[in-house]
Simulated assay, not measured.
Amino acid sequence: MSGPYEHPFPSAQSYPAAQPYSQPAALPSSNAGWAVVAIIFFWPLAIPAFNHALKVHPLWMMGDVQGAQHSSNRAGFFGKLSLIIFGAFIVLYLAFVGLVVANM
């Protein structure tokens, strides 16, 4: 039943509810710099560091945002771990040299 004074648009209840706008997740850093640190200071950890650093972009492009973030975090972890191991080796070396010099 359509009359001249009837509202031309359907009621507001027939429209779907507005969805909040969500921004797409930003590409996480690949932490390739930490992988380079791993090469310089403790090369055995550079292999998994680069492996994870190079997986960040492909995972993100496939839509696996959590996987890309995980790979980014792991690449940084291996780089930082290599720096810590190098520091521990330096401390042990200096302690050894100190013991040798003290016993002379």
Rank of each mutant, 00 (worst) to 15 (best):
F9A: 15
A17Q: 04
S22N: 09
K55M: 15
H7S: 08
M61L: 03
L59E: 08
S2V: 15
P8I: 06
L81F: 15
A35R: 01
F77S: 11
L94Q: 00
M104N: 14
A88F: 08
F78P: 09
L92N: 06
N51G: 12
V97F: 14
P20C: 00
A53P: 07
M1C: 01
H52F: 15
A88P: 01
N51I: 09
G87F: 05
N103K: 06
W34H: 09
L27R: 05
I90S: 13
A32M: 11
V100D: 09
L59S: 11
S72Y: 02
P24Q: 12
V97P: 10
F9E: 15
W43P: 01
L83M: 06
Y5Q: 12
F96H: 09
I85F: 12
M62D: 14
Q23D: 11
P58S: 03
I90C: 10
F9I: 14
Q66P: 00
A17H: 03
G76E: 12
Q66I: 03
G67S: 02
G98T: 06
P48F: 03
F9H: 15
V36R: 05
I40G: 13
G63D: 02
L45D: 05
P4L: 14
P16R: 11
P48G: 04
P4T: 12
S29K: 05
Y93G: 15
H52D: 15
N103R: 09
A68C: 01
N51Q: 10
I40M: 13
M62G: 12
K80P: 04
Q13N: 10
S22G: 09
H52R: 13
N51K: 13
V37D: 09
N51E: 02
W34V: 04
A12Q: 06
Y21C: 05
H57Q: 14
R74S: 04
S72C: 03
V56P: 02
F78S: 11
S11P: 08
P20S: 00
F77Q: 09
P48K: 06
A49D: 04
V36Y: 05
A35V: 01
D64V: 01
A88G: 11
S29G: 04
L27F: 01
V101F: 04
V65W: 07
G98R: 07
A68Q: 02
A68S: 07
Y93S: 14
V65P: 01
P16T: 07
A17P: 00
W43I: 03
S30K: 02
V36S: 09
M1I: 07
A88K: 07
M104D: 15
N73E: 09
A95S: 10
